[in-house]
Amino acid sequence: MFHILCTLLAILIVTLAHAAPQTSPTIVPQIRTNGFQLEPLNQEYFLRIEHPAGTIRQESVKQDEAGHLQVNGVINQPFEDQGANLILTYEAGPNGYVAKYSFGKGPPTPPPETPLFLSPSALKTAAG
């Protein structure tokens, strides 16, 4: 299931990268379900996938003025049988793809904090 979601996300990113400039203010729809969060914010989005086995994938994507996407993410996959975790951080953009990984024992490294997303009406209410 996790690999299917990753594949679908990769297809979405490739499609967006090759699409004509959008007239819509967001590049993806907002989706919040059990273990899956996709949050649009203008020409950006935030994704978090929590697999029941403990793997967490979290990434943010920004679109620059030229329409290029810049992806930054982390995948944290526990290997309970070995008492270790695989941490993969990655960046992808118009200049290529860079990934770094570590595999080690000890407590898992949590992904970066999930950003707080507020609706426009909540922001208007907070502003007074």
Rank of each mutant, 00 (worst) to 15 (best):
P94W: 02
P94L: 09
Q22V: 14
N95D: 14
E65C: 13
L38K: 06
Q77A: 10
Q63T: 14
D81S: 06
T15I: 13
L16V: 08
R32P: 01
Q82N: 06
A66E: 14
Q82Y: 09
N34I: 08
H3S: 09
I11S: 10
K100M: 08
V14M: 10
P112N: 03
L9N: 10
A126G: 15
T33Y: 00
F36E: 01
L16M: 09
D81I: 09
P21Y: 12
K100D: 10
N95E: 11
L38Y: 10
H51W: 09
M1K: 05
V14S: 12
P107R: 08
T55D: 00
T26V: 03
I31H: 05
F2H: 00
L12I: 13
G96E: 06
K100A: 10
H18M: 15
A66H: 14
D81Y: 06
N95H: 09
G35N: 04
T26L: 03
L118T: 07
P107L: 10
H68E: 12
A10W: 04
D64F: 00
T33W: 01
L41I: 04
A126H: 15
N95Y: 12
L69M: 09
S121T: 09
I87P: 11
Q22T: 12
D64W: 01
A66M: 14
N85Y: 02
S60I: 01
A17S: 15
Y97G: 06
L8W: 12
T23G: 13
T15H: 15
H68C: 13
G35F: 02
L116H: 05
R57T: 05
I87E: 01
A99K: 09
A122H: 12
E91V: 01
P110T: 00
G73S: 05
A66G: 11
T26K: 02
T15Y: 15
N76I: 04
D81R: 07
E91M: 01
K124P: 08
Y45P: 11
L118K: 05
Q30R: 03
Y97Q: 11
P78N: 13
L12P: 14
P29V: 08
K62N: 03
M1A: 08
K124F: 15
Q43A: 12
L118C: 07
P111M: 04
Y97V: 14
G104V: 09
Q82K: 07
G54C: 02
G67W: 14
G104F: 15
I27Y: 04
I27S: 10
R57F: 04
P120L: 11
T7P: 03
L123I: 12
F103G: 00
V74L: 04
E91N: 04
I31K: 03
T125A: 14
I75R: 04
N34P: 01
H68W: 13
Y45I: 11
A66Y: 15
P115M: 06
T125D: 13
A10H: 06
S24Y: 11
T89L: 07
P40T: 04
F2L: 04
V14A: 13
F79C: 04
L88S: 02
P78H: 15
N72C: 08
A19P: 11
N76H: 02
Q77M: 05
Q37K: 07
E39W: 08
R48N: 04
P115I: 05
T89C: 05
P108S: 08
T55K: 03
P78Q: 14
V98D: 07
E44V: 00
K62S: 03
I4W: 06
P112T: 02
C6A: 15
P29S: 07
I4Q: 07
P21G: 15
Q22M: 14
